[in-house]
Amino acid sequence: MTEILQTPPLVVVFGGSGFLGRHVVRALARRGYRVRAACRRPDLAGHLQPLGNVGQIQPVQANVRVRWSVDNAVRGAAHVVNLVGILHESGRQRFGAVHTFGARAVAEAARAVGAGMTHVSALGADAQSASAYQRSKALGEKAVLETIADAVIFRPSVAFGPEDTFFNRFANMARYSPVLPLIGGGETKFQPVYAVDIAEAIARSVDGQVAGGRAYELGGPQVLTFRQCMEELLAVVDRKRMLVPVPWWLANLQASILGMLPKPLLTRDQVAQLREHNVVSDKADKEGRTLPGLGIQPQALGTILPSYLWRFRAAGQFQRGDTAGNAEA
Protein backbone atom coordinates (compact mmCIF):
# COMPACT_ATOMS: atom_id res chain seq x y z
CA MET A 1 0.00 0.00 0.00
CA THR A 2 1.34 3.41 -0.92
CA GLU A 3 1.89 5.62 2.10
CA ILE A 4 0.32 9.06 1.81
CA LEU A 5 2.57 11.76 3.21
CA GLN A 6 0.81 14.62 4.94
CA THR A 7 2.05 18.18 4.53
CA PRO A 8 3.23 19.58 7.88
CA PRO A 9 1.10 22.42 9.31
CA LEU A 10 2.07 25.96 8.37
CA VAL A 11 2.91 28.45 11.15
CA VAL A 12 3.21 32.13 10.29
CA VAL A 13 5.54 34.13 12.53
CA PHE A 14 5.19 37.91 12.32
CA GLY A 15 8.50 39.47 13.30
CA GLY A 16 10.24 36.18 12.53
CA SER A 17 13.51 37.81 11.45
CA GLY A 18 14.05 39.68 14.72
CA PHE A 19 15.94 38.88 17.91
CA LEU A 20 13.26 36.65 19.43
CA GLY A 21 11.91 35.61 16.05
CA ARG A 22 14.95 33.62 14.99
CA HIS A 23 14.72 31.51 18.15
CA VAL A 24 11.00 30.92 17.61
CA VAL A 25 11.57 29.95 13.97
CA ARG A 26 14.28 27.50 15.03
CA ALA A 27 12.09 25.91 17.72
CA LEU A 28 9.20 25.47 15.28
CA ALA A 29 11.40 24.14 12.48
CA ARG A 30 12.85 21.51 14.81
CA ARG A 31 9.32 20.32 15.49
CA GLY A 32 8.76 19.81 11.78
CA TYR A 33 6.42 22.73 11.08
CA ARG A 34 6.58 24.69 7.87
CA VAL A 35 7.41 28.26 8.87
CA ARG A 36 6.53 31.46 7.07
CA ALA A 37 8.48 34.36 8.56
CA ALA A 38 6.51 37.55 7.90
CA CYS A 39 8.72 40.64 8.11
CA ARG A 40 9.08 44.06 6.56
CA ARG A 41 12.42 43.24 4.89
CA PRO A 42 12.47 39.57 3.80
CA ASP A 43 15.60 40.34 1.78
CA LEU A 44 17.40 40.73 5.12
CA ALA A 45 16.08 37.45 6.56
CA GLY A 46 18.58 35.10 4.93
CA HIS A 47 19.93 34.14 8.36
CA LEU A 48 16.72 32.12 8.95
CA GLN A 49 17.28 29.64 6.11
CA PRO A 50 19.95 27.49 7.87
CA LEU A 51 17.61 27.01 10.86
CA GLY A 52 15.52 24.41 8.99
CA ASN A 53 15.56 22.02 6.06
CA VAL A 54 15.55 23.16 2.44
CA GLY A 55 12.27 24.94 1.71
CA GLN A 56 11.00 24.60 5.28
CA ILE A 57 11.37 28.29 6.16
CA GLN A 58 10.00 30.99 3.86
CA PRO A 59 10.47 34.71 4.55
CA VAL A 60 7.65 36.86 3.13
CA GLN A 61 6.97 40.59 3.12
CA ALA A 62 4.36 41.90 5.54
CA ASN A 63 3.82 45.01 7.61
CA VAL A 64 1.34 44.86 10.49
CA ARG A 65 0.33 48.46 9.70
CA VAL A 66 -0.77 47.39 6.20
CA ARG A 67 -3.77 45.09 6.49
CA TRP A 68 -3.70 43.53 3.00
CA SER A 69 -0.10 42.38 3.53
CA VAL A 70 -1.12 40.71 6.80
CA ASP A 71 -4.02 38.91 5.08
CA ASN A 72 -1.70 37.66 2.35
CA ALA A 73 0.85 36.41 4.86
CA VAL A 74 -1.57 34.23 6.85
CA ARG A 75 -3.13 32.36 3.92
CA GLY A 76 -3.10 28.63 4.62
CA ALA A 77 -1.86 29.04 8.19
CA ALA A 78 -2.77 26.62 10.97
CA HIS A 79 -1.34 28.92 13.64
CA VAL A 80 -0.14 32.52 13.76
CA VAL A 81 2.47 33.95 16.12
CA ASN A 82 2.80 37.72 16.57
CA LEU A 83 6.15 38.93 17.88
CA VAL A 84 6.12 42.41 16.37
CA GLY A 85 7.10 45.22 18.70
CA ILE A 86 9.12 48.44 18.83
CA LEU A 87 11.08 49.94 21.72
CA HIS A 88 10.71 53.55 20.62
CA GLU A 89 8.63 55.50 18.14
CA SER A 90 9.95 56.86 14.85
CA GLY A 91 8.26 57.96 11.65
CA ARG A 92 5.17 55.85 11.02
CA GLN A 93 6.26 53.30 13.59
CA ARG A 94 4.09 54.41 16.50
CA PHE A 95 3.22 52.33 19.57
CA GLY A 96 -0.48 52.45 18.81
CA ALA A 97 -0.03 51.53 15.16
CA VAL A 98 2.28 48.57 15.82
CA HIS A 99 1.27 47.22 19.23
CA THR A 100 -2.49 47.86 19.10
CA PHE A 101 -3.69 48.27 15.50
CA GLY A 102 -1.12 45.73 14.30
CA ALA A 103 -2.08 43.17 16.94
CA ARG A 104 -5.76 43.44 16.02
CA ALA A 105 -4.96 43.17 12.30
CA VAL A 106 -2.98 39.95 12.84
CA ALA A 107 -5.71 38.51 15.09
CA GLU A 108 -8.48 39.32 12.61
CA ALA A 109 -6.48 37.81 9.74
CA ALA A 110 -5.83 34.66 11.79
CA ARG A 111 -9.50 34.35 12.69
CA ALA A 112 -10.48 34.73 9.02
CA VAL A 113 -8.48 31.63 8.06
CA GLY A 114 -9.42 29.66 11.19
CA ALA A 115 -5.90 29.70 12.63
CA GLY A 116 -4.93 29.62 16.29
CA MET A 117 -2.91 32.51 17.69
CA THR A 118 -0.06 33.22 20.08
CA HIS A 119 0.64 36.85 20.88
CA VAL A 120 3.78 38.13 22.62
CA SER A 121 3.19 41.22 24.73
CA ALA A 122 5.39 42.51 27.56
CA LEU A 123 5.59 42.12 31.31
CA GLY A 124 4.12 45.23 32.86
CA ALA A 125 1.51 45.79 30.14
CA ASP A 126 -1.08 48.03 31.77
CA ALA A 127 -3.75 50.26 30.24
CA GLN A 128 -3.25 52.69 33.15
CA SER A 129 0.54 52.84 32.91
CA ALA A 130 2.41 56.14 32.64
CA SER A 131 4.31 54.56 29.75
CA ALA A 132 2.78 54.77 26.27
CA TYR A 133 4.65 51.56 25.41
CA GLN A 134 3.01 49.61 28.23
CA ARG A 135 -0.43 51.10 27.52
CA SER A 136 -0.24 50.11 23.86
CA LYS A 137 0.84 46.59 24.81
CA ALA A 138 -2.16 46.21 27.12
CA LEU A 139 -4.53 47.48 24.43
CA GLY A 140 -2.94 45.04 21.98
CA GLU A 141 -3.66 42.13 24.33
CA LYS A 142 -7.26 43.30 24.67
CA ALA A 143 -7.64 43.52 20.89
CA VAL A 144 -6.30 40.00 20.41
CA LEU A 145 -8.54 38.40 23.05
CA GLU A 146 -11.61 40.28 21.76
CA THR A 147 -10.91 38.78 18.34
CA ILE A 148 -9.74 35.27 19.31
CA ALA A 149 -10.95 34.37 22.79
CA ASP A 150 -8.65 31.35 23.16
CA ALA A 151 -5.48 33.10 22.01
CA VAL A 152 -2.37 32.58 24.14
CA ILE A 153 -0.71 35.73 25.51
CA PHE A 154 2.91 35.72 26.69
CA ARG A 155 4.38 38.59 28.72
CA PRO A 156 8.17 38.20 28.95
CA SER A 157 10.43 40.27 31.17
CA VAL A 158 13.69 41.63 29.71
CA ALA A 159 14.85 39.01 27.21
CA PHE A 160 18.52 38.18 26.89
CA GLY A 161 20.47 36.26 24.27
CA PRO A 162 23.21 36.75 21.66
CA GLU A 163 21.38 39.50 19.75
CA ASP A 164 19.67 41.28 22.67
CA THR A 165 19.53 45.06 22.85
CA PHE A 166 19.96 45.27 26.63
CA PHE A 167 23.13 43.53 27.80
CA ASN A 168 24.92 43.97 24.48
CA ARG A 169 24.30 47.72 24.60
CA PHE A 170 25.69 48.19 28.11
CA ALA A 171 28.59 45.79 27.49
CA ASN A 172 29.55 47.84 24.44
CA MET A 173 29.24 51.03 26.49
CA ALA A 174 31.61 49.54 29.07
CA ARG A 175 34.29 49.23 26.41
CA TYR A 176 34.60 53.01 26.07
CA SER A 177 32.96 54.70 29.05
CA PRO A 178 34.49 54.76 32.55
CA VAL A 179 30.98 54.88 34.04
CA LEU A 180 27.65 53.14 33.56
CA PRO A 181 24.48 55.04 34.51
CA LEU A 182 21.99 53.65 37.03
CA ILE A 183 18.72 55.37 36.17
CA GLY A 184 16.70 56.13 39.28
CA GLY A 185 19.51 54.71 41.40
CA GLY A 186 19.41 51.29 39.76
CA GLU A 187 16.79 49.87 42.09
CA THR A 188 14.27 48.80 39.43
CA LYS A 189 13.83 45.01 39.55
CA PHE A 190 13.99 42.76 36.50
CA GLN A 191 13.61 39.04 35.94
CA PRO A 192 15.76 38.48 32.82
CA VAL A 193 14.54 35.56 30.70
CA TYR A 194 16.50 33.66 28.06
CA ALA A 195 15.12 34.08 24.53
CA VAL A 196 15.40 30.33 23.90
CA ASP A 197 13.12 29.65 26.89
CA ILE A 198 10.54 32.12 25.56
CA ALA A 199 10.73 30.43 22.15
CA GLU A 200 10.14 27.02 23.73
CA ALA A 201 7.00 28.32 25.48
CA ILE A 202 5.74 29.74 22.18
CA ALA A 203 6.43 26.47 20.36
CA ARG A 204 4.49 24.57 23.01
CA SER A 205 1.54 26.90 22.53
CA VAL A 206 1.62 26.10 18.81
CA ASP A 207 1.69 22.40 19.74
CA GLY A 208 -1.54 22.96 21.69
CA GLN A 209 0.08 22.30 25.07
CA VAL A 210 -0.75 25.73 26.53
CA ALA A 211 -4.27 26.69 27.61
CA GLY A 212 -5.56 29.75 25.77
CA GLY A 213 -7.58 32.75 26.81
CA ARG A 214 -5.10 33.90 29.42
CA ALA A 215 -1.78 35.72 29.84
CA TYR A 216 1.41 33.97 30.96
CA GLU A 217 4.21 35.92 32.64
CA LEU A 218 7.67 34.75 31.64
CA GLY A 219 10.69 35.46 33.79
CA GLY A 220 14.00 33.81 34.54
CA PRO A 221 15.02 32.12 37.79
CA GLN A 222 16.52 35.30 39.29
CA VAL A 223 15.10 38.68 40.27
CA LEU A 224 17.84 41.28 39.93
CA THR A 225 17.95 45.04 40.34
CA PHE A 226 19.27 47.16 37.50
CA ARG A 227 22.46 47.60 39.55
CA GLN A 228 22.86 43.85 39.98
CA CYS A 229 22.38 43.33 36.24
CA MET A 230 25.21 45.78 35.55
CA GLU A 231 27.42 44.12 38.18
CA GLU A 232 26.79 40.73 36.59
CA LEU A 233 27.60 42.14 33.16
CA LEU A 234 30.85 43.76 34.31
CA ALA A 235 31.95 40.52 35.95
CA VAL A 236 31.43 38.66 32.66
CA VAL A 237 33.30 41.20 30.50
CA ASP A 238 35.96 41.53 33.22
CA ARG A 239 35.94 45.30 33.34
CA LYS A 240 35.84 47.69 36.29
CA ARG A 241 33.53 50.63 35.78
CA MET A 242 31.89 53.12 38.12
CA LEU A 243 28.14 52.65 38.55
CA VAL A 244 26.74 56.16 38.88
CA PRO A 245 23.15 56.70 40.11
CA VAL A 246 21.15 59.07 37.90
CA PRO A 247 18.13 60.71 39.61
CA TRP A 248 14.82 60.56 37.79
CA TRP A 249 14.72 64.26 36.97
CA LEU A 250 18.14 64.13 35.34
CA ALA A 251 17.26 60.91 33.48
CA ASN A 252 14.20 62.65 32.04
CA LEU A 253 16.32 65.62 30.98
CA GLN A 254 18.88 63.36 29.29
CA ALA A 255 16.09 61.37 27.63
CA SER A 256 14.57 64.57 26.22
CA ILE A 257 17.85 65.18 24.38
CA LEU A 258 18.80 61.60 23.49
CA GLY A 259 15.26 60.87 22.36
CA MET A 260 15.71 63.21 19.41
CA LEU A 261 18.39 60.98 17.85
CA PRO A 262 17.41 58.69 14.93
CA LYS A 263 18.26 55.67 17.12
CA PRO A 264 17.82 57.07 20.64
CA LEU A 265 19.85 55.62 23.47
CA LEU A 266 17.12 56.63 25.92
CA THR A 267 13.60 58.09 25.69
CA ARG A 268 11.28 59.64 28.27
CA ASP A 269 8.90 56.73 27.80
CA GLN A 270 11.68 54.28 28.68
CA VAL A 271 12.41 56.29 31.82
CA ALA A 272 8.72 55.97 32.72
CA GLN A 273 8.96 52.19 32.23
CA LEU A 274 11.95 52.00 34.55
CA ARG A 275 9.87 53.43 37.40
CA GLU A 276 8.00 50.11 37.61
CA HIS A 277 9.47 46.72 38.55
CA ASN A 278 9.49 44.19 35.71
CA VAL A 279 8.96 40.87 37.50
CA VAL A 280 6.49 37.99 37.46
CA SER A 281 3.53 38.63 39.76
CA ASP A 282 2.74 36.43 42.75
CA LYS A 283 -0.69 35.72 41.25
CA ALA A 284 0.77 34.39 38.00
CA ASP A 285 3.22 32.28 39.98
CA LYS A 286 0.50 30.75 42.17
CA GLU A 287 -1.70 30.02 39.14
CA GLY A 288 1.12 28.37 37.20
CA ARG A 289 1.10 30.99 34.44
CA THR A 290 4.91 30.99 34.31
CA LEU A 291 7.72 29.06 32.61
CA PRO A 292 7.96 26.48 35.43
CA GLY A 293 4.17 26.20 35.32
CA LEU A 294 4.53 25.22 31.65
CA GLY A 295 7.16 22.62 32.53
CA ILE A 296 10.09 24.75 31.34
CA GLN A 297 13.05 25.25 33.66
CA PRO A 298 14.35 28.76 32.86
CA GLN A 299 18.08 29.18 32.42
CA ALA A 300 20.04 31.56 34.65
CA LEU A 301 21.63 34.77 33.42
CA GLY A 302 25.09 33.79 34.62
CA THR A 303 24.99 30.57 32.61
CA ILE A 304 24.25 32.26 29.28
CA LEU A 305 25.89 35.72 29.35
CA PRO A 306 29.49 34.41 29.02
CA SER A 307 28.50 32.56 25.84
CA TYR A 308 28.09 35.82 23.92
CA LEU A 309 29.46 38.75 25.96
CA TRP A 310 33.02 37.38 25.84
CA ARG A 311 33.60 39.53 22.75
CA PHE A 312 33.45 42.64 24.92
CA ARG A 313 36.40 41.53 27.07
CA ALA A 314 39.73 43.23 26.49
CA ALA A 315 41.21 39.97 25.14
CA GLY A 316 37.99 38.41 23.90
CA GLN A 317 37.54 34.69 24.39
CA PHE A 318 41.16 34.29 25.48
CA GLN A 319 40.76 36.47 28.56
CA ARG A 320 42.22 34.58 31.55
CA GLY A 321 41.96 31.32 29.66
CA ASP A 322 38.15 31.50 29.51
CA THR A 323 36.16 30.14 26.61
CA ALA A 324 32.95 31.45 25.13
CA GLY A 325 30.92 28.57 26.48
CA ASN A 326 28.75 26.30 24.45
CA ALA A 327 25.22 27.33 25.35
CA GLU A 328 22.76 27.41 22.46
CA ALA A 329 22.85 30.75 20.68
Rank of each mutant, 00 (worst) to 15 (best):
H99S: 01
D285T: 14
T303P: 01
G32Q: 11
E200Q: 15
S177T: 09
V60S: 11
Q209S: 10
Q222K: 13
M230F: 13
N72D: 12
V54Q: 13
K283G: 05
M242E: 05
D322V: 04
L233A: 07
A38Q: 10
V24A: 06
T290C: 09
A211W: 03
T225P: 04
E231S: 01
N63M: 02
A122M: 10
R41I: 02
V210G: 01
E108C: 02
L218Q: 13
D282W: 08
R111C: 02
H79E: 01
P8I: 06
R40N: 13
M1T: 06
A314M: 01
L28S: 08
G21F: 03
P245Y: 03
V206N: 10
A143D: 07
A125E: 14
T290E: 10
Y33S: 00
A107Y: 01
R34A: 10
G102M: 02
R26H: 15
A103L: 07
Q191E: 13
G55E: 03
Q134H: 12
L123R: 05
R34Q: 15
I257K: 00
G316Q: 03
K286C: 07
A314I: 03
Q134Y: 12
L139D: 12
Q317F: 08
V158Y: 10
R104T: 00
I304L: 05
D285F: 07
G91T: 09
P162K: 03
A37I: 07
Y308H: 01
D126M: 04
G114H: 02
E89I: 06
D282T: 13
Q58F: 01
G15Y: 14
L301K: 09
L20N: 02
G186L: 09
M1G: 15
P247L: 04
I304M: 04
A211Y: 02
S131L: 12
I153R: 00
L253F: 14
A314Q: 12
G15P: 11
V179L: 08
S131N: 11
G21T: 13
A251Q: 08
E200R: 15
A97E: 06
V196R: 15
Q191Y: 10
R268G: 08
A215S: 14
V158A: 13
T7E: 11
F154P: 05
L180P: 07
G293V: 13
V280E: 12
N53M: 04
E187T: 14
V279R: 11
P247T: 05
V206E: 11
V236Y: 00
Q56L: 08
E200G: 04
V84D: 01
A110W: 00
K263W: 05
V237A: 01
T147K: 00
G293R: 15
P192T: 13
A314L: 08
G46P: 09
R169W: 05
L265K: 04
Q93E: 14
L180K: 00
P306G: 10
F170A: 02
E200P: 10
T147W: 00
L5K: 08
N278M: 14
G325P: 03
R41N: 15
A215P: 10
C229L: 10
R135Q: 15
S157H: 12
R92V: 00
C229Q: 09
M173N: 05
A300G: 06
R34L: 13
W248Q: 03
N72I: 02
L258W: 06
N326W: 14
K263V: 14
L83Q: 05
L83E: 08
A138E: 06
T188F: 01
S121G: 11
K263C: 04
G185H: 03
R31M: 12
R75M: 12
G220L: 06
S129P: 10
R22T: 13
F167L: 11
